[in-house]
Amino acid sequence: MTQTLQTLPLKQIDADTVEKLASSIAERDSITRVVRDVVDTGLRNVYFVGAGGSLICSYPAHYLLQQKASFPAFQLQSDELNTSVPELMGPGSLVVLASYTGTTKETVAAAKTAKRAGATVIAAAKTGSPLAEAADVAFSGKSDLFELLVAYELLAATAAELDLEAVSQALTALPSAVHHAIEQAEPLLADIAQALKDEPITYVLGSGPSYGWAYGFAMCFLQEMQWKHAAAFNSGEFFQGAFEMVDDDTAVLLWLGEDASRPMGERAKAFLDRHCKKAQYVDVRDLELPGIPTSVREHVSPIVVGALANRLAQHYESVRGHDLEQRRYMFKVDY
């Protein structure tokens, strides 16, 4: 895997970040109607199902429902559903799926599996894609925000304790706030990529909904898209073994969110400050999110983490000269 590194031009910050998020939020009314129909006909439980990035993107919504919902919410890898349908899945189940391309074969199969079980299936997928065709209702929104919107509407429809005015204010402000956060974090992200670009392995930590992008950054961005060895750990599980591998020569990246699990990240940071000279931190609390009410920052901060992870990957691409679209096996061989 050793390669001679040459730099690539750094991509501009995605000009369509605001547009993508705004177009997702524009589907809110349609999501509300679908969710209320499911609730009115007897909602029993919710499943977030996906593979790779789409599973990662479900962490914020799943975490929010675990905190506030009066009904059970589950998270499943697509083929886990295909190989073993949960006994609780059936009429009254809402299954929420996503796929960037709408063609991920195990996720398309999972939609069909869920429908055979009697569940209502909704998805974020490209119009006309196999997943869109397999779902009862398909939306075109950005996966993580789409699923968070579903969670918000489920809570509203089931009369959960929720400040709907603050939520609406946050959603209106979110596209511009995310773009602002990326711009504000740009120097930090550039420094992290430069500091860690040559490391033989990087440990990536996160807790609560931010664990999704700790896992996603290690697996999708570093392993898949940069061919770099990496491993992800929940910030709490880090102390159950992995921290024994840490010394002053170990590269660690820690994502710190603003949700209830933040003390787990702070504990990890306190340890790393003492025992690891190569630790790097991205803390959403340090970033301005204009227009986002303080009471809602904990819910939307994982969306910000996802955007920052994507931008950090672009910095890796630039300083390592390894195109994020380059693959050895994915989309190229049968698997």
Rank of each mutant, 00 (worst) to 15 (best):
Leu5Arg: 15
Thr7Cys: 07
Thr7Ser: 15
Leu8Pro: 14
Asp16Val: 00
Leu21Ser: 03
Ser24Ala: 14
Arg28Asn: 05
Val35Ala: 07
Asp40Arg: 13
Thr41Ser: 15
Leu43His: 06
Val49Asn: 07
His62Gln: 12
Tyr63Phe: 15
Gln66Lys: 12
Ser70Ala: 14
Glu80Phe: 01
Met89Val: 10
Ala98His: 09
Gly102Val: 12
Gly102Gln: 12
Gly102Pro: 09
Ala117His: 00
Ala123Ile: 11
Thr127Ser: 09
Leu131Pro: 15
Ala132Met: 14
Asp136Ala: 10
Ala138Cys: 07
Ser140Arg: 07
Asp144Trp: 07
Phe146Val: 12
Val150Pro: 05
Leu154Lys: 01
Leu155Ala: 11
Leu155Tyr: 05
Ala166Gln: 13
Ala170Ile: 08
Leu171His: 03
Leu171Asp: 01
Thr172Pro: 04
Thr172Glu: 15
Ala173Pro: 10
Pro175Phe: 00
Val178Asp: 11
His179Trp: 07
Ala185Met: 04
Glu186Met: 05
Lys197Arg: 08
Lys197Tyr: 01
Trp213Tyr: 06
Phe217Cys: 09
Ala218Phe: 02
Met219Phe: 06
Gln226Ser: 05
Trp227Leu: 08
Lys228Cys: 09
Ala230Met: 08
Ala232Phe: 05
Phe239Asp: 08
Phe239Met: 10
Gln240Asn: 13
Ala242Gln: 13
Phe243Leu: 12
Glu244Asn: 05
Val252Tyr: 07
Ala270Phe: 08
Asp273Cys: 04
Arg274Trp: 02
Cys276Glu: 03
Lys277Arg: 12
Tyr281Asn: 08
Glu288His: 08
Glu288Gly: 10
Glu288Asp: 15
Glu288Cys: 06
Glu298Thr: 08
Val300Pro: 11
Val304Asn: 10
Ala309Thr: 12
Arg311Thr: 12
Ala313Met: 13
His315Leu: 10
Gln326Ala: 14
Val333Pro: 03
